[in-house]
Design a protein around this nucleic acid. Structure first.
Lengths: 224, 224
DNA sequence: AACGGCCGTCAAGAACGCGTCAAAGGTGTC
DNA sequence: GACACCTTTGACGCGTTCTTGACGGCCGTT
């Protein structure tokens, strides 16, 4: 989860920002003045700072420099002042962006996305573990006992539908629709064929599947 | 010297930007429309792009996506439109900043400094090793057994997309979109053609690729 | 005990996708 | 205007994948 520190001395604005950011999946911390901001930043180590200038206790540039002393997190400055000199000062002090109030919340969120996008993408993809096998859906990679297993396109599609519904029963109809298209309803032999191939490649004992289960007459289920 | 690409169809603005940027020590290239911009970007590999929306030949988002396909250089958008929706669209397409005209040249320069500041001291030279071959994406240089290998622009774009997703499978659709544009979906023969050329230039044994792998029916993968 | 439904398995031909070669447009350079 | 380079396009052989049909075993029902 991306952590955002919101620094604003006006409670309504701080609250509005908190709600909007939280609604978009950010973890929000708030601070009401410069001293609190620096303390909170040291405590939570945010990935991004939204900083309102014109705090009661410190000058904006001071706060920026205080943060920049040890953090490289993007700083997005909010301010009521539209004068270019103010913007230039804040940007040169170390801010990454400058938005004048009143601002559109959608635009602010877009700027937050743009700022986190640059520094963010150190994320590795989620892998699903099936016994001795690991499946990385985004990288399209399967490993069994360390070395890679090749799946055909159809096998991938089928496996993907099952893995995206962990523990849930997926009906034959739905599997056929998702993999072969809406015109396929009764070709259950396709399913038998490809489920067998998947078990051969993924299960420790293909004859006694533990994770790719058959529900006779209904469909198939992936058990994590 | 920091290289800046200025894209604007209005000669006066382009000229003013060129003069101001050059006066502050930037190396400036200009382009008057989207097609020129993409070509110039591939040729000079700018460290930052100043992009005016409302070009005569292409939609702004198209240009941004065309650049983002292979470049991580900051994109600073200029526009006469102040509507939030426009800003959000541009930022989410991959732009880093959005300035509405008329703009203060001092502020623009400050935003340029802020943008280059964060990408500048990243300093890690993105050199990827492919067996006996080294690829320097930022310097656009490939060396095989020490001596230089020449790649065409298309080969570069294709290689770059793959290298930026190490280990991950990139679908043929995505490769075609990123290299040739969103209108290309089924021209898989392009991919076959250029993958073969890349393997000829980069792989030790082009007939048995070790790093540039084919996933039949799905796409290609770069394995480090 | 016989039957039918359902599943797993095996084995074919058909269809598809890939690598490769070759050659025709297109663009910029000398 | 000729040339070189890059891109686009077409065609062919081959290996893999998909499709299709058939057979036998398990299970619940009749």
């Amino acid at each position: 989860m991306i952590k955002v520190l919101v620094v604003d001395d006006e409670p309504q604005i701080a609250r509005a920002l908190r709600i909007n950011l939280a609604a978009h999946g950010y973890e929000v911390t708030t601070a009401a003045d410069g001293a609190q901001a620096l303390r909170a930043a040291a405590a939570v180590v945010p990935d991004l700072v939204v900083l309102d200038l014109g705090l009661p206790d410190m000058d904006g540039a001071e706060v920026i420099e205080g943060l920049r002393g040890w953090s490289k997190a993007p700083i997005l400055v909010l301010s009521g002042r539209a004068a270019s000199a103010e913007k230039i000062a804040a940007l040169d002090a170390g801010a990454d962006d400058y938005v004048t109030k009143p601002f559109d919340i959608g635009e602010l969120l877009a700027r937050v996305r743009a700022a986190t996008r640059r520094s963010g993408p150190g994320a590795e993809s989620p892998v699903t573990a099936i016994g001795p096998v690991t499946v990385d859906l985004s990288a399209r990679e399967v490993r069994k006992d360390g070395d890679e297993v090749r799946l055909t396109p159809t096998e991938w599609q089928l496996l993907e539908v099952l893995l995206r519904n962990p523990g849930k029963l997926v009906s034959q109809r739905e599997l056929l629709h998702r993999v072969w298209g809406p015109n396929y309803d009764r070709e259950t032999n396709y399913l038998r064929q490809y489920m067998a191939q998947l078990r051969r490649k993924l299960e420790a004992d293909p004859a006694r599947p533990v994770h790719l289960l058959t529900e006779p007459g209904m469909g198939y289920r992936f058990r994590p």
